[in-house]
Every structure is written in C-alpha cells, then in structure tokens.
C-alpha cells in the first residue's frame, strides 16, 4: 500500500510538472503583458509589472492606423466572429442537407459522387491554393469574405461524418411515416431530420468554428485590407508593424487574441473533450 502511495506521489509530481510546463508559456505571456518594454528587455520576472494600461493604450494607438477605419484588435474579433459564425452555420446546414440527400434517396451516380467526397477528404488544401487565388482574382472576390465563407457549403469531412451518423441512428421508417402524413420532402428535412441530427451538427460545429476562427493561410492570401483581417492574420500583421516595437504591447495583443478561446474552453471543455474521444473511437 505504501509503495503504491509512493508511486502515486511521484506520478502526481510528474503530472503537475507537465501541467506547469504546459501552462508556462501562458504565464509568461500574461505576466509580460503587464510589464514595460524596458523591463522585458532587461530580463524575465514572475512578478507582474504595472504597465498593463500603458501597454493597452500603446497597442490601440498603433493598431488604430487610420482614423475611424481600423479599430485594432476589437475589429479583429468582430471579423473573425462574422467569418466563423457564417462558416459554421453554412457548413452545418448544407452538410446535413447533403448527408441526408445521400442517405434517403436512390439516384444515378450516387456511389461515384460519394466516393468523390471521400477522395476530396484526402486532398491537402494547398493543392488548389494558387488556383483558388486566381479564381477569386478573376471573380473579383479577392479582399472580400466570399472566398472564406462560401466554400464552407462544401465540407467533405462534415458530410461524411453526418452520413455515418444518419446510418447509425436514423430509421427509414420515420421518413416513411412522415410521408404518409403528407409532409413534403423539404419539410421533412427541416422539421424532422434536422432536429434529429442536432447532436452531430453540434459536435461538428465546435470544430468547424474553432477551425474557422484559427484559419490563417487562406485569409492571409485572399484578404488585403487591414480592416478586414481576421484575428490570426491581424496577429501576423502586427509582427512587422509599430506595435512590435514595444514588447509589452505585443504580449498583451497575443494574450487578448487567445483570451476568447480560453474563456470558451472553460465552459465547454468537457463537451469538447468527449467529442474528440467519441469521434476517434468511431473511426
């Protein structure tokens, strides 16, 4: 028994150490966002400084590059939020629709088309990047949110996941019953199927939202005007700008950029983690 407690003690020590290592970058980030540039250049300290407000003012001053046009980090939040919400809604709705189309109906070419979806899951997104850029250049949709939002109507992995969900949970008799009651096909989908699929949609939505919120490469390539930058691109943009001349402000900007995710995670951690577990076991 004693030996077991000893092992347990060692293991807890190890886990705690690992947890601390995991959190140290966050601690450095938060502490340094309260310290002045001179203090940071002199060396690291675990004692927070007194320059938080000054760092914030400096950051906002330099981010507000054009009077009234570019309101710094808050605008970045707004842009990211608009994009991520639109992507999540479109992807959730149309993936459910497509998955249901494949599940409930028999039509020519169904198999081929479904295999096409499976194949596209394997294709790395970089393959079409340059063509995507040229397409949007030709369509005059560069520097708009169209290339960031509209393509989410076609998300192969989500369709695949939802079809699997339908296969394992839906009974075709339910659809038949609804038809006998005289419901139209479109109404059946919206009134019966969509509510049934909600758990699957919710699960995918979390990951779609996080993915869209964190997306970097595509917006980096297609968005030019700073006032339209989503948060991740905005952060990269800061690196070469005036904010980066003051380390305290830079650390503060980084802290602020990750804060919403950390806060959301505090409320959703159980749900997110169980979704990951569930998703992987089904594979």
């Amino acid at each position: 028994m004693n030996k077991r407690n000893f092992i347990r003690g060692i293991l807890y020590a190890f886990l705690t150490l690992l947890a601390i290592t995991c959190l140290i970058p966050f601690a450095m980030m938060i502490i340094n966002s309260t310290r002045s540039n001179t203090e940071i250049v002199r060396g690291f300290s675990i004692i927070p400084g007194k320059s938080l407000i000054e760092n914030y003012k400096n950051m906002m001053y330099h981010m507000d590059v054009s009077d009234g046009v570019f309101k710094g980090i808050w605008l970045g939040y707004k842009n990211s939020f608009i994009i991520a919400v639109s992507v999540t809604v479109l992807s959730g709705y149309f993936s459910a629709l497509t998955a249901y189309g494949f599940f409930a109906y028999e039509f020519k070419g169904k198999k081929v088309l479904f295999i096409l979806i499976l194949l596209m899951m394997m294709v790395p997104s970089q393959l079409g990047l340059l063509g995507f850029f040229e397409l949007n250049k030709a369509l005059k949709t560069l520097d708009t949110y169209i290339p960031l939002i509209i393509p989410s109507i076609a998300t192969p992995f989500t369709v695949f996941f939802m079809r699997q969900y339908l296969v394992s949970t839906m009974h075709p008799a339910l659809i038949e019953a609804a038809r006998i009651d005289g419901a139209g096909e479109i109404a059946i989908f919206h009134k019966i199927i969509l509510p049934i699929m909600m758990p699957a949609i919710a699960t995918m939505s979390i990951f779609t939202f996080i993915g869209a919120w964190n997306n970097y490469l595509v917006p980096l390539v297609v968005i030019f005007s700073p006032e339209k930058y989503p948060l991740p691109v905005l952060m990269g943009y800061l690196k070469g700008g005036k904010v980066a001349e003051n380390l305290g402000s830079m650390y503060l900007a980084i802290s602020m950029s990750v804060a919403p995710i950390i806060i959301a995670f505090m409320f959703l951690s159980k749900y997110i983690i169980s979704s990951i577990s569930a998703g992987s076991v089904k594979e």
Partner: peptide, 10 residues
C-alpha cells in the same frame, strides 16, 4: 481620406 497601412514586409 482613408489611409491603409501594410507594413513593409508584406
């Protein structure tokens, strides 16, 4: 007027 600034690097 409206001024848009992109740092030199990009």
């Amino acid at each position: 007027t409206e001024l848009t600034i992109i740092p030199t690097e990009n």
